[in-house]
């Protein structure tokens, strides 16, 4: 049981936040991660000593999230994102934070699940492409192409178009 305690201390918060970004709802994310940890603990013997723990755990989390997205969530109507606006409002840059957070969540929600997962694992969970490949049980090349497609789609998303054009202008200015 000490091992599980160590897992939870090390990975629980980030797993919940990762699941939240994939599912778009905090309660669903907490459910999914609780289920994932219990499942990972139950099948802990299947984790070989050579393989790294983090991608293996994320594989369980991603599978659980996929299962929720396929079976549980579509059966409920009107499930929406529950970012706490008040917490965001405590930041210094209130308008910018609210707008960007809403835009990012909106753009993420519109991405297909397989692209959303790789974006979240890469840019939030900070997994390498190799680790993501383990987590989603696909080849590394697939991960790379999904990341490229996801970034292109995000740049073209109406909510983030201004953000991407601003960043491209800034980079042009820097190179110019």
């Amino acid at each position: 049981m000490d091992d599980l305690q160590a897992w939870l201390a090390e990975c629980y918060p980030q797993s919940v936040r990762t699941a939240y970004l994939i599912l778009g709802n905090r309660l669903d994310a907490e459910d999914a991660v609780q289920e994932s940890f219990l499942r990972a603990w139950k099948f802990r013997d299947s984790l070989s000593k050579e393989s790294s723990f983090k991608p293996w755990l994320y594989r369980v989390v991603v599978n659980t999230c996929n299962s929720k997205l396929r079976h549980d969530i579509p059966r409920r109507e009107g499930r929406v994102n529950d970012v706490n606006l008040v917490d965001i409002a405590t930041y210094d840059d209130l308008p910018g934070r609210i707008a960007l957070s809403n835009d990012v969540m909106s753009a993420l929600r519109d991405l297909p699940v397989h692209l959303r997962v790789v974006v979240v694992l890469r840019y939030y969970a900070d997994l390498s492409e190799r680790e993501i490949a383990i987590a989603i049980a696909r080849k590394q090349g697939t991960v790379k192409s999904r990341l490229n497609e996801a970034r292109s789609r995000l740049a073209l998303h109406p909510a983030l178009r201004s953000e991407s054009s601003r960043s491209s202008t800034t980079s042009k200015e820097v190179t110019g």
Partner: peptide, 28 residues
């Protein structure tokens, strides 16, 4: 091809993900 800036994405995802507190009882 236009792509969204990685830093912008990382910062924004971190902001969104950290917008709520993790329940302390969940691990228990």
């Amino acid at each position: 091809m236009t792509m969204i800036d990685e830093d912008v994405l990382i910062n924004a995802l971190n902001d969104v993900a950290s917008a709520f507190e993790i329940s302390p009882d969940a691990t228990d």
